[in-house]
Simulated assay, not measured.
Amino acid sequence: MAEEKDVFYVVRKGDVVGIYKSFSDIQPLFASSVSGEPLSIYKGYSLPQKTEEYLVSHGLKGAPYSIGAADVHEGLFGRLVACPYLDPYSSGGRTFDASSSSRNLQGAIQFDSSKQAGSSLLPTNSQRHHALGGSQAELSTCLSCTLHFDGASKGNPGPAGAGAILRDGSKVYRLREGVGIQTNNVAEYRGLILGLKQALEKGYKQIHVQGDSLLVCSQIQGLWKVKNQNMATLCSEAKELKDKFMSFKINHVLREFNSEADVQANLAIHLRAFAAGEVQEDCQFL
């Protein structure tokens, strides 16, 4: 799609609204919308100066941006038009709907704030930190992260641990959780779930996941069937978590490229090895 002069796009997925200056920047969101929350896309021209000033005054500067849907008020982006798009990942070639009216746009973008006493139109402190800057470096530090996950079991089944490494441009989180007496596959899933939960709690909206479990990666992608009920429950929980991200990607890597997560998983075995639930975290600033 050729870019038009001064165009910008307003995108909602779940409780997050993103403002993008290029349609190509929205492409990674399509894949995660197929099985997760749908996207609503609108197009505007020449982002109003008052909107730029509003964003800058509250810690959001550069483009693209990301704010909470509850902080979008009518007229913030000026005049917007519907921007239906063809889902390239759907075999049926379905088109996502977008309302053409300004009033319905606010309904599509904004939360029902009637249940939020004292709600404000200003971004919260956490939302300010989630803003995307104009450079790729700012993108990685503010909104996007990579996750490496792993699991370990001494005995398979036996005392087991889950490990995860969350990394953005400025920080590395090392996570480990004792998961009790479990199989290696369960521990692998628990490592993935641990990492996804922590990423969401820390405010990340885009995530690239890597792990050396071909089973977990393939089942999450829907390439392999889930036959075991225990695995099905864990897979379902992981998919529910992944659908909360604006963008999600997962791929299998060889064990030698997952050594940091492996270290955390093996350390986690000694965290109340016979009882699940204890989580430890270290953070290093780069």
Rank of each mutant, 00 (worst) to 15 (best):
W224E: 07
V10M: 10
A82V: 05
H130P: 00
H148N: 11
Q127F: 06
Q106T: 10
A2K: 07
V7A: 15
H73V: 12
Y89A: 08
A261L: 11
V16R: 10
E53H: 02
T95P: 01
R176K: 14
H148K: 12
L234P: 02
L55G: 04
A117D: 08
I19W: 09
I165W: 01
F111N: 11
M1E: 13
G93N: 04
F77P: 02
L139C: 05
L76R: 15
H129L: 14
L147A: 09
G118P: 08
R190W: 05
P159N: 12
S119Q: 05
Y204K: 08
H252T: 07
S218E: 12
L132E: 08
K249L: 05
G222Q: 10
S22T: 04
K225S: 12
E138R: 01
Q219D: 05
G75Y: 11
F96W: 06
G180A: 03
A160I: 05
S126Y: 00
Y65C: 08
L254T: 03
D168C: 12
S90Y: 02
E260S: 14
G151Y: 00
N185F: 04
L147W: 08
S126V: 05
G191D: 07
K154Q: 14
S102D: 02
Y9A: 01
L47N: 10
E52R: 13
H58G: 01
E256K: 10
R94L: 05
I220G: 04
T233N: 07
N266K: 14
G203I: 03
V226T: 15
P123I: 12
S40Y: 13
G75R: 10
P64S: 03
Q136I: 09
E37W: 06
E201H: 02
S102L: 08
H208S: 14
L86F: 01
F149E: 05
L55R: 02
C217K: 06
V253T: 11
G107W: 08
A261Y: 11
Y42L: 11
P64A: 07
V34P: 00
E188K: 13
T51G: 02
A261W: 10
G133N: 04
C235K: 12
G180E: 02
V209L: 08
G59A: 01
K242E: 15
T95R: 03
F111D: 13
M246Q: 09
M231K: 03
L76M: 15
D71C: 14
